[in-house]
Design a protein around this nucleic acid. Structure first.
Length: 444
DNA sequence: AGACTCGCCGTCCTGGAAGG
DNA sequence: CCTTCCAGGACGGCGAGTCT
């Protein structure tokens, strides 16, 4: 822990609030010199007994102040002032904007983007910022740091939502932490990279570019159970990341270096192929892994078939108790498979053309495939435009499917956005057209 | 002990209705 | 035309419980 971070931990302790879990690094990693004397002063100014909201606010304002460095803070004697003339800025917005859907951004004095937002009614939204009270309202805190405001109109609320997401991802404005999708409601199945990969459940699909992710799914707990069953059936490892793996065919390894006893009991009871004790060749382990991937993709019932065969074998050998155990496992796995199918969001259903008529009766057609917008086209009118539309449709919808159904990590936010949009506006879903239908309707 | 998960609850953001 | 108020949904903090 750097001295600065340690000091800022003290800051949080001082105000009686815990560092924001998970996000603390984002908020604390900026190297800022904050002295305890300054914190004490701020605390005194705020009063010693504060409700939680006020305490967070205090920390918020203080961090705002210290972003420019302690020197700048010291220089800025007396009360804080807005960076720019708010009356002039308000007049600019008042005169220059219309009540239409659009996105806006607040920029700081260095031109850095502070906040990106969207609204169905841009003008009303922007003017509401000028009524916010400093320092209590977040809107005012953003406004006071802003040197200027930029905005752009969008043809519809949907278009504005999409544009906002893309701008936030591109610009990563510091006041947009709030916009982060609720990661707690979703989880992903991760195939870890490295020797003898294993399956894990994770809530963060953005961290590891080398991992392969499936999802998003709901309820990490149930997905975890499903994975345990799956790993058991296929003999995949389930041990800690730091356990060394040795395949039997890794001949360059000195025999003496290989551990003789497995790190866990799963190999002994036949639930793990035992890559930790070189009990399996890489080829066999990789084949089992492929079965797991296919199962998660929904393209293969290999694990279910394996269990069915096992059950039949026990039954044939008159081992009825073992057969019953296999049947129970099979049922659990089938149930979990059903859950995974049900929980799998959007990927299968969010493939269509989505015409949206917006401002000035302008209609845009969004070509959505597997939960992400692949093209945003003007509603075709002329013959040439119709041909173009047909060509785009063909290129997007007829493109070969990815080998798996996993969602690339950079597309997950958009998938979640579309998913929540159509959940919130079920009526919009009925306006979508299947790819072939769209070509008949809009194509040449 | 630290990381992770989950449910509860307060806060924030937004759109829309009502009123001046 | 502008402001105020309200409702609904999304989001984050917190604490308890569980896992490693």
């Amino acid at each position: 822990m750097t001295p600065q971070i340690a000091e800022q931990r003290d800051l949080f302790a001082l105000f009686g609030v815990a560092p924001l879990r998970g996000r603390s690094d984002e908020r604390l990693s900026v190297e800022r010199a904050v002295t305890l004397a300054e914190l004490e002063a701020a605390k005194a100014a705020a009063g010693s007994v504060l409700p939680t909201a006020e305490m967070s606010l205090c920390v918020d304002v203080l961090l705002d102040d210290t972003t420019d460095g302690a020197a700048a803070t010291r220089k800025r004697k007396g009360k804080r002032k807005p960076v720019t003339d708010l009356e002039a800025l308000r007049e600019l917005v008042k005169v220059g904007t219309q009540d239409r859907p659009g996105t806006y951004r607040f920029l700081g004095s260095e031109g850095e983007v502070l906040y990106v937002g969207k609204s169905k009614q841009l003008r009303t939204r922007l003017l509401s910022y000028f009524r916010a009270e400093w320092p209590h309202d977040k809107g005012a805190r953003i406004l006071w740091r802003a040197a200027r405001i930029e905005w752009e109109y969008q043809p519809s609320e949907f278009a504005a939502l999409l544009r906002e997401l893309r701008l936030i991802k591109q610009l990563r404005p510091r006041y947009n932490w709030m916009m982060k999708r609720d990661a707690r409601h979703y989880c992903f199945v991760k195939l870890t990279p490295g020797v003898a990969p294993k399956l894990t459940v994770t809530r963060d699909a953005s961290g590891d570019e080398r991992g392969v992710y499936f999802g998003p799914y709901l309820s990490a707990g149930r997905v975890g159970e499903a994975l345990r069953e799956l790993s058991d059936v296929l003999g995949l490892r389930d041990c800690a990341n730091d356990v060394r793996m040795h395949f039997r065919d890794q001949e360059e390894l000195p025999v003496l270096a290989m551990p003789r006893t497995p790190g866990c009991i799963r190999h002994e009871i036949g639930k793990c192929l035992g890559p930790c004790v070189a009990a399996v060749t890489e080829r066999v382990y990789t084949a089992q892994l492929a079965l797991a991937r296919a199962f998660l993709d929904g393209t293969s019932d290999g694990p279910l078939e394996a269990l069915t065969a096992r059950m039949q074998a026990h039954s044939d050998a008159l081992e009825f108790e073992r057969a019953a155990q296999s049947r129970d496992k099979l049922q659990r796995l089938e149930l979990l498979r059903l859950q995974l199918e049900k929980l799998r969001f959007a990927v299968e259903t969010l493939t269509f053309a989505y015409p949206v008529t917006g401002h000035g009766n302008e209609t845009r057609v969004y070509l959505v495939k597997r939960g992400t917008v692949r093209a945003d086209l003007k509603l075709p009118v002329s013959r040439r435009e119709q041909l173009e539309f047909a060509e785009w449709s063909r290129r997007i919808f007829h493109a070969p499917e990815r080998p798996t159904r996993q969602v690339p990590t950079h597309e997950i936010d958009e998938l979640l956005l579309l998913s929540s949009w159509f959940q919130r506006n079920p009526g919009e879903f009925s306006r979508t057209l299947a790819p072939e239908q769209a070509v008949r309707e809009f194509g040449a």
